[in-house]
Amino acid sequence: MKKVLALLLLATLAFMTITLVVDNNLLPDFGETKVENSVSDTYIKQNAMGENQDIKFGETKNLEIGSANAITGIVAGYRSFDTLGEVTVLFISALGVSLMIGTTDSWMKRSQSGFILRVGSKAILPILMIVGVYIITHGHLSPGGGFQGGAMIASAMLLLSLSDHEFMPKIKAFKMLEGLSGTIYILIGLVGMILMGHFLQNIDQTGTIGELFSAGLIPVVYLFIGLKVGSELTGIISDFMKKEANI
């Protein structure tokens, strides 16, 4: 009976949503989106503060964001405040998970890891770490950024903990790293407010678009986001490997 009701409800929802998507003038047809009609046009042309010349890769200097990757320009530039909220969400989730598991030092028993895993992880680990750091530092130039690179670093930690059972209990510094990167993110925002008048405003020249040292504070912000995400994901993984305190 409950299934029939659920199906009826979903059929109604499906009918309404699909009608909206297929023949309504609110949503554009699939694949026909016009960027010119939205604020994204400004984000791409980087002219929110005023008109500027055509953007040429490796030549145009001191744009208002200066990031070659338009998505990074939005995530860490125009809508940086959302990103601050986003890292806060991750921060509270990691904190909540560790509060629920409690302070315990007993870990779940796992079977001995195999030879291939132990040796293979040592070979893969440096590559994973380097690619993670590369993705973080080149977030404003190529696909990727702090979140993706941070997840990669956390996956390297997961691999280590799978191969070496003594690894997870050893790491204690990650909580500090979490707090530190979050603090620095907000301090960057406050410095922007004190020097330039607006929270999270860029205080630096943004340099030439396409170069590694460009886009003002975005690489700095992304580096700390990467560290924060990496340490938080690692924290969540290690909390899930713990045993409950009261057993």
């Binding site: 604020v39 984000y43 607006h198 405003q201």
Partner: peptide, 8 residues
């Protein structure tokens, strides 16, 4: 925030 005018 960030000094960008509405709606940007």
């Amino acid at each position: 925030i960030g000094g960008f005018e509405r709606p940007f």
